[in-house]
Amino acid sequence: MSDMDDMDDGSGIIKKFMFLNRKAPHGTVYALEGLEVVLITAAFDQDVSLVFTDDGVYQLMKGIDTKGIEVKDFSKTYRALEGYDIEKLYVDRTSLDARGLTEDDLIVDVTVLADDEMANLMAEQDVVISF
């Protein structure tokens, strides 16, 4: 990640980027490759929000152990997001409830939002990218 400092498109424009994480952390590559885009966007000094919804809430679950499926465990990256000035993490309450999870099951501090609050937050964004 050393190539990510001081990226700039030269325009000085700062837009609100929302990344919508909808998939479980493993089983498909979307969560892993999605995180790469999040980090690069932050390196461009954009206003980044992360939303975890549907099975995406599992990305933040404590106690992930990938030894049995022999794939990389990237869950510690979520803890490092603060170091990239990515501090707006939102989780959809309906998705948590549907999976029997609470904030205490998650590895990072998040803001839990109701459906209407989530809809309002989305409406404020300039760019929404869904993984």
Binding site: I13, F17, V37, I40, F44, D126, V127, I129, F131
Partner: peptide, 21 residues
């Protein structure tokens, strides 16, 4: 090229439309 090209699209264009699963 790199992912920066994608971020630039989000910054510079009026809309970014995703096609995926």
């Amino acid at each position: 090229s790199g992912l920066g090209q994608l971020v630039e699209m989000g910054i510079q264009y009026d809309r970014l439309v995703t096609f995926g699963d």
